[in-house]
Design a protein around this nucleic acid. Structure first.
Length: 207
DNA sequence: GTCCAGGGCCGTT
DNA sequence: AACGGCCATGGA
């Protein structure tokens, strides 16, 4: 069943190549710092939209703690401060803790993201999933969009897409992830673009 | 006032 | 394995 790959080609023709999904959504340039923001954004965006996450980034920027290291230091001293800054993205007490623990994990074990991502995909994924508050979707978003690792992200948009296109009548995370990966070249760029296209498609239908 | 936005965790069945 | 309740904000 190469239907999935054909759907990818179809969406690519329809919407064009999404230049840089995260840049477009975050309205930011792709820099080294940006990778950290992408990873942090993956947690902040849980069950909310990007506008809210933008507000948090602005707060963090204003407070000059917009990096993994700075958040780690700030959170260690005073979690309440992080809570206050993270508030606009909702679930702020949980998310402050989640963000802090993620930063703590990176800094204390690897010093920086680069080092962490230098390991193989399987190791990175297992370690991310061990951090409380980081589940499969958040972990894979971090791996794919911040780490450039070839792993396909399943989210609500993807499930709606699967349903609309009658790709499968089973919707569990692992099953769908497997299905997409088996029917696509193992290429992070393609996974990124396809994911962006699925969201663009989902939003265009909603209107 | 009501609805909802790109999850994850925990407890129950 | 599947489902329900919970976490919380601000814009439409």
């Amino acid at each position: 069943m190469k239907k999935i790959y054909q759907l990818y080609r179809f969406l690519l023709r329809k919407h064009g190549r999404p230049k840089d999904f995260w840049r477009k959504w975050c309205k930011r340039k792709k820099t080294k710092e940006d990778k950290e923001e992408i990873a942090l954004g993956a947690i902040l965006t849980q069950r909310t939209n990007w506008k809210r996450v933008e507000l948090v980034f602005e707060n963090l920027k204003r407070a000059k703690i917009l990096s993994i290291k700075k958040i780690y230091q700030a959170g260690k001293k005073d979690l309440k401060l992080l809570e206050k800054l993270i508030r606009p993205s909702g679930f702020y007490r949980q998310k402050a803790k989640r963000i802090y623990r993620f930063c703590q994990f990176i800094v204390e074990n690897y010093r920086n993201l680069e080092k962490f991502f230098s390991q193989d995909l399987k190791t990175c994924r297992e370690e991310l999933l061990d951090i409380p508050g980081i589940g499969p979707e958040t972990a894979d978003s971090i791996l794919l969009f911040a780490g450039g690792k070839p792993i396909f992200v399943i989210d609500e948009y993807t499930r709606c897409f699967v349903k609309r296109e009658k790709i499968s009548n089973q919707f569990s995370y692992n099953y769908l992830q497997d299905l997409f990966q088996k029917n696509l070249p193992r290429d992070a760029k393609i996974y990124q673009d396809f994911h962006a296209l699925i969201i663009l498609e989902g939003q265009s239908i909603k209107l």
